[in-house]
Amino acid sequence: MLLIHCPWCGPRAEIEFSYAGPAQLRRDGALEDLLYLRDNPKGRHEERWRHAHGCGQFFATARDTVSDFFLPPPVAKP
């Protein structure tokens, strides 16, 4: 189980969170890309989580999809 750093509550277990998709989706391109196409990068992936069973806040972070470790620095905007 991953240990996820909520910027408001600190490190908490993964079961308190729900994944909320990739961060910073571009809304200015083709609609089909926005709705259906997602990158599946090997390595750094900027993504959003919600501390659903905690403070309820959404936040963005970056994770290495190979090692599953979260990467600094924190991503600014969810």
Binding site: S18, A20, R48, R50, A52, G56, Q57, F58, K77, P78
Partner: peptide, 10 residues
């Protein structure tokens, strides 16, 4: 509620 919170917050 999750969707509403998502739009409200982000």
């Amino acid at each position: 509620l999750a969707m509403m919170e998502d739009y409200r917050q982000t």
